[in-house]
Design a protein around this nucleic acid. Sequence first.
DNA 1: CGATATGCTTGCACTTTGCAATTATCTATG
DNA 2: CATAGATAATTGCAAAGTGCAAGCATATCG
Lengths: 168, 168
Amino acid sequence: MKQTAPASDDGLKLSAWLPYRLFLVVAQVARPLESFYSETFGLSQAGWRILAVIAERDAANASEIGRACALDPFAVSRGIGQLADLGFAVRRPGKTDRRFAAVSITRSGRVAFNRIAALGSAIEARLLARLTESERTTIDSALTRLEGESARIDAGGWRALLDDADVP
Amino acid sequence: MKQTAPASDDGLKLSAWLPYRLFLVVAQVARPLESFYSETFGLSQAGWRILAVIAERDAANASEIGRACALDPFAVSRGIGQLADLGFAVRRPGKTDRRFAAVSITRSGRVAFNRIAALGSAIEARLLARLTESERTTIDSALTRLEGESARIDAGGWRALLDDADVP
DNA sequence: CGATATGCTTGCACTTTGCAATTATCTATG
DNA sequence: CATAGATAATTGCAAAGTGCAAGCATATCG
């Protein structure tokens, strides 16, 4: 009676794997935020991300937005469409090159953003309260490097990852 | 000419917001891994997460799995179905209480898991290489607290978050 | 001027998700 | 010991989201 394999035989303990641990925090924190903005404004996840980007970077074009929040051009286009329907954003042809849309947040978009941002800040405050001052500093600096390295990992694709170490 | 609101007036700078920074790392790191297991095994994201859970915790039931990887019962059920179709998992009625499914990884499921885990380990290694030993220690301990706090945040829902601080 | 390239959008098929209803099993009670 | 009320999991179906081919507008090059 040995149809199922018994214990773990590779070196990956999920609960200790760094990306998984980060994922858990992100997923759990995203859920209440998402239910807030979707219930309150009918905003999708992509819509919220884009709103947050154009709230801090005015007259952004679609590719910039996509890069800033890990969204492909289709999703960006649709997200902007949603924001435009809700009256939270306007798109105008770009000033110099009119192929580039210049997407800007509207007044009511900013109002909505501020409401969501208040929740976001509350969440961050709850998290930061669990850390000491020196931990915050360490994490801030470490995270900068992790962002850079993860961008490179992403850009390289999975094939590049197996050239370094053990391969199947 | 003032249809659009100008600069940021609330305190949320997206690029400095902790959950966003964590999200970026997670999203970028997940992408190559996902394209690997979906191309190679036809596994969905939920399928992979569940596979990873049952690889380290044998005879798990659906709610345990769901809790362990932030998946609702429907998604878990479907994910298990997918794994069963692929021959990577079997479900049997639980031993004592037969309502609980006892989900176990199969031999070929473990083979697949090990292949994916190798990639996962490579990714983690790349990330950890960017950190000093003391940063790793700090992050390890901080992350444990963040996991706990984010679980509480999730459990409380968004209404609970606004009772503490500034409200809209 | 075409011809070609680029940024973005749209239409359509396909997949994933959310939720109500269902099945199977267990526990408690008269 | 039958029946009512839980609980764990699954399934069916509609709604939402996604991926990709093709399309439109604009720009640049020969």
